[in-house]
Design a binder for these strands. Structure first.
Length: 779
DNA sequence: AAGAAGTGGCTTTTT
DNA sequence: GCCACTTCTT
């Protein structure tokens, strides 16, 4: 078979390129995966390169699986001995360390190839324990915050000592200490976190010249997908792997770089030609996926970015439908519009698939509810995955302890699950002892039992626990993983605990555990041992089991990378949500948000809907907040847009604002002049005021009292007259600022002299203002 | 020691 | 609205 056939000239050139570095700039929908798979097949068949000498690295397991499958199909079946190695960065590194990691012990004392992998939950548990030992709590910093702080330091190769040295305030010093303890505890547990998997593989390859040579010789051709999302460590790994031959092909699109927050370094792709001087560069700019309108709209949005090489995708397909825009009253109406539209479109053409993409996971709930009302089946990608469920993590923690007893995080997870009489005070005692003597929890238990320090009841419970673990560990050496799992669940009483539980959730937990046992049985049949089974559990992501054929999928924009759908909805296009609040004050972050928008838009083949809500409730019972449409909406050329918003369609004035105020007022029992005909509310208002006149800062009386207070210690030149107001500024109020002009109040914090307003000014973004000094006038 | 009931705090995105 | 953590109860 000729693998150059049926490809456009640029694609052909890429497939035919054999030796030396190649940068493939592949725009969205330009047939990138096709090129990579054809190139692999071409290397194997036309150039007689043995499959196992080709390494292709992808971002997700799912992408790896798909690539494997497609190469397989192209070549009409390959035995596993002839297959190329297709893997994610993380699983590649894990395999390297498990197979050839012995000499890492020279760099990392205590390391053995039986290491365990700590996922984010494990890391949080560890940080929690370190915080407790250090006398810190979550008010100092959230556990997750500390995790990502440490991760940042690690991936920038800053050691705890470096941080100590550069520390400017005591909080940094405290963090450095947490970091130092964190590293020490990982080593003590012979555990690696996600960062370590890459970092230690790099350190090992740099350190062990023989090993490096071996890998260089083995992997004669290396291909990296989604190169724009690689970080510095991955970059170093690639350099080490291709040191001797430079047969490196990287594929990427700087406009789709969306993992900067996780350390992805866009320089990797922007500087490729500089790093590999004689690199060939091929651009794939013909788009085969989307209609002309969709492509033009997406291109127009991303053209607002400056950090890009710049390209313009083109297509021979027709204009298609215009981009639909829908401005809903609130999140609920937005969700109902989406569900309703999906219902209509899929009824009309049942073979189509639709995807709803959103910026944050919490947005899925309302959309799910709406879809359920329509009786539409859907799949949600993201949120908590199978392997993150408590019962699954418990079962896996047992397995981890059996194969690596010094894994203290796992020991502490299961030591009293199910309850076996090892209580809080006993556990604290053990933790304390372990800390003082620099022992793992497992060793500490052993030593303390020898020293007879426990009260009789705790002692008996601990002995039973220890014996049970030892017996199960002995079983693990010979039996199948699935059998050991079953034995664990039976002997620990875990199954009994769930069966006796009246919580309706328990039934599904039991089902999940059964599924886990099945998965283990399948793994055993493939000849995998415990380590491989656990590695797989640690490294699968939720997007890996996305079923692309599902008629309706709900997923985050990040999870949508690499996918395509005939119908796409981008939901929640509001300033502060998308672009996200945390990106508003940084140009680089804003450009990443815009790339995310570009990724989302270019997922669509035929129809693209952009939806936004005027008011959104951020958390459950909290306040509804007014929002303003995302800047990305206005970056789509008006000529390409068809507006489906109800108020425009009906040709009416905007009643939303008024309705909203009435609602809010009714809820807060405030008289705003709009509810005078509601006896109930007037009654409530007076009742409330009679009870606590001063406690309601938002009432006119309270404001009048506060307003005349003189400002202190503020440059006199900038003090505008405090404007006494009849009505307090709240979410949704429209105001005029002397410098920024018209804006909408998004949020109000504090009261009286301290009242701060978050205001969105079109053209200036969000600003935080002190109400008293800002010189704001109500519009 | 172990469950039940109540409270605060919070939400980007993820291999 | 949900989760984790605390306090209360037995």
């Amino acid at each position: 078979m000729d693998f150059l056939e049926g490809l456009n000239p640029q694609q052909q050139a890429a497939v035919a390129h054999v030796e030396g570095p190649l940068l493939l700039l592949a725009g969205a929908g330009s047939g990138k995966t096709r090129v990579i798979t054809h190139r692999i097949a071409h290397l194997i068949e036309a150039h007689r390169v043995p499959g196992p000498c080709i390494l292709a690295v992808t971002f997700t397991n799912k992408a790896a699986e798909e690539m494997r499958q497609r190469v397989h199909n192209l070549l009409g079946g390959l035995s596993s001995r002839e297959s190329p190695v297709v893997s994610t960065f993380h699983s590649f590194c894990v395999r390297l360390l498990r197979r050839d990691g012995d000499r890492l012990a020279e760099l990392r004392p205590g390391f053995t190839k039986k290491f365990t992998i700590y996922d984010e939950d494990d890391q949080v548990a560890l940080i929690k324990s370190i915080f407790k030992a250090t006398g810190l709590d979550e008010k100092f910093m959230s556990y997750r915050g500390a995790c990502s702080w440490i991760s940042q330091k690690k991936s920038h190769k800053e050691s705890p000592q470096d941080v100590y040295g550069a520390a400017t305030d005591p909080n940094i010093t405290r963090l450095a200490s947490v970091y130092e303890q964190y590293e020490a505890r990982l080593r003590q547990a012979n555990a690696l976190d996600f960062d370590d998997l890459l970092l230690e593989a790099v350190r090992l390859l740099a350190h062990d010249e023989d090993l490096r040579r071996q890998y260089n010789q083995r992997f004669e051709f290396v291909m990296i997908d989604e190169y724009q999302d690689t970080n510095r460590t991955q970059y170093e790994l690639i350099r080490l792997l291709t040191g001797s031959h430079k047969n490196l092909c990287v594929v990427g699109d700087e406009d789709q770089s969306i993992y900067g927050w996780r350390g992805a370094d866009i320089r990797n792709i922007l500087d490729f030609e500089h790093d590999y001087p004689n690199a060939a560069v091929i651009r794939l700019e013909q788009n085969y996926r989307s209609t002309k309108n969709i492509l033009e709209a997406a291109s127009a949005v991303v053209a607002n970015n400056t950090e890009r090489k710049g390209k313009w995708l083109w297509t021979t397909s027709g204009a298609g439908e215009r981009i639909a825009r829908f401005e809903a009253f609130d999140g609920e109406q937005e969700a109902l519009f989406i569900a309703d539209t999906i219902e209509k479109l899929l009824t009309a053409s049942p073979e189509d698939r639709a995807a709803v993409l959103y910026r944050t996971n919490f947005q899925s709930r309302q959309i799910e509810e709406a879809l359920r009302r329509y009786g539409r089946k859907y799949v949600v990608v993201g949120g908590f995955s199978f392997y993150q469920r408590a019962e699954i993590k418990d079962a896996l923690a047992y397995l981890k302890v059996l194969s690596s007893p010094h894994d203290s995080v796992s020991v502490l997870r299961i030591i009293n699950t199910p309850a076996r009489g090892i209580g809080k005070s006993t556990i604290e005692q053990i933790e304390q002892y372990a800390l003082e003597n620099e022992l793992s929890i497992w060793s500490a238990i052993g030593r303390m039992l020898d020293e007879n320090v426990f009260p009789p009841r705790a002692e008996a419970a601990l002995r039973t626990f220890r014996n049970m673990i030892q017996e199960l560990a002995a079983m693990l050496a010979t039996a199948k993983v699935s059998d050991v799992l079953e034995e664990i669940l039976a002997r620990t009483g875990y199954i009994k605990m769930l069966e006796g539980d009246k919580d309706p959730e328990s039934e599904s937990r039991l089902a999940n555990l059964n599924e886990l046992i099945n998965a283990a049985a399948e793994a055993a049949e493939r000849g995998e041992g415990v380590a491989e089974f656990l590695d797989h559990a640690a490294l699968v992501s939720d997007s890996d089991n996305l079923d692309e054929r599902a008629p309706v999928s709900l997923l985050t924009l990040h999870n949508a990378k690499g996918l395509e759908f005939p119908i796409v909805f981008l939901a929640g296009l509001e300033e502060g949500l998308f672009p996200h609040m945390r990106s508003l004050d940084s140009k680089a972050a804003m450009e990443e948000e815009r790339r995310l928008c570009y990724v989302g838009m270019t997922r669509a083949e035929k129809r693209l809907f952009l939806t936004t809500a005027r008011y959104r409730r951020r958390w459950g019972g909290g306040e509804t907040e007014a929002s303003i449409p995302s800047r990305f909406l206005s970056e789509v050329p008006e000529a390409l847009v068809q507006d489906l918003s109800p108020r425009k369609r009906a040709g009416q004035v905007d009643l939303y604002g008024e309705r909203q105020e009435v609602r809010e007022a009714a809820r807060r029992n405030l008289y705003t002049g709009k509810t005078y005909n509601s006896v109930e509310n007037i009654q409530q208002f007076f009742n409330e005021r009679g009870k606590q006149p001063a406690a309601a800062p938002a009432t006119p009386t309270a404001i009048a009292k506060v307003a005349p207070a003189a400002p202190k210690a503020v440059p006199t030149t900038h003090i505008p007259k405090p404007t006494p107001r009849a009505k307090p500024l709240r979410s949704g109020s429209n105001i005029i600022h002397p410098k920024y002009g018209r804006g909408t109040v998004l949020r109000r914090e504090g009261d009286g002299d301290d009242a701060k307003l978050t205001v969105s000014f079109p053209g200036y973004g969000l600003k935080k203002l002190i109400e008293k000094y800002a010189g704001i006038k109500e519009e």
